[in-house]
């Protein structure tokens, strides 16, 4: 079953002056439970594609359908609400809220979704157990290492049970040990929770772990390989 279905996707910046075609006719389907990496050189359109899949940017042409819902049909407020309930984000710089504890960071999105305190606490405990940071529950992000912070960010994205997770260069700021731990964690969560992960990355280690590699060049898919 396709979680994401992209048809004839185009994104052109500066349409009236010097047009730059960041995404130039992409067709793509991503199924539930995939562990996919989008790769390619700088400026190939990875980030633009990720932003459009995440509903943070509007395509110039074409459609993106998530779990049967066309993103184009949403107005600004509806799109924010759709993101809240359906898409998990993991950022390169972790982007945890420094004034909240690990527990509060993990439950933050669930609270925005309006989940009950009991439900939040249960899920936070599950997630912290899963990422191995239960003992850091009451610590603030600045008391954690970069790898631990990124694990909290993954837990935050996953806790609200989205349809899929978009991870933009999640290992760019991590050392090899932390990268390896994080990838193992995400792979395990992918298998255990059947959660779809889509990475944009330059990192060879991420590419090695991915089970599908989509290579972009000049805004087009030039290679789409499924690794068995």
């Amino acid at each position: 079953m396709n979680v994401i279905e992209i048809k004839n996707l185009h994104k052109t910046y500066n349409e009236t002056q010097v047009p730059v075609k960041a995404v130039n006719g992409i067709d793509l389907q991503i199924e539930q439970g995939e562990f996919t990496a989008i790769v390619g050189p700088s400026g190939c359109g990875k980030t633009t594609l990720m932003n459009m899949i995440g509903g943070l940017d509007q395509p110039t042409e074409g459609t993106i359908s998530i779990d049967g819902n066309l993103l184009n049909q949403f107005k600004s407020t509806g799109l924010i609400d759709f993101r809240l309930h359906n898409i998990g984000f993991v950022f390169q710089a972790y982007n945890l809220l420094p004034v909240l504890t690990v527990k509060e960071n993990v439950e933050f999105i669930m609270q925005l979704q309006g989940k009950s305190r009991k439900e939040c606490e249960k899920r936070v405990d599950e997630m912290l157990e899963s990422i191995g940071l239960k003992d850091k529950k009451h610590q603030r992000p600045n008391q954690l290492s970069g790898g631990q912070q990124q694990r909290v960010a993954v837990a935050r994205a996953l806790a609200s049970k989205p349809k899929f997770i978009l991870a933009d260069e999640p290992t760019a700021n991590l050392d090899s040990k932390s990268t390896s731990d994080l990838l193992d964690l995400m792979e395990r969560l992918n298998l255990e929770e059947n959660m779809t992960f889509i990475f944009s990355t330059h990192d060879e280690r991420v590419m090695k772990k991915a089970r599908r590699l989509i290579t972009l060049e000049d805004g087009k898919i030039v290679k789409d390989v499924t690794v068995k």
């Binding site: 995440g54 924010i80 809240l84 898409i87 984000f89 710089a93 925005l112």
Partner: peptide, 13 residues
């Protein structure tokens, strides 16, 4: 950056 993150993850206006 933090506000960008909050709006990305679904914090409405």
């Amino acid at each position: 950056k933090e506000l960008g993150m909050l709006m990305s993850v679904g914090m409405n206006k």
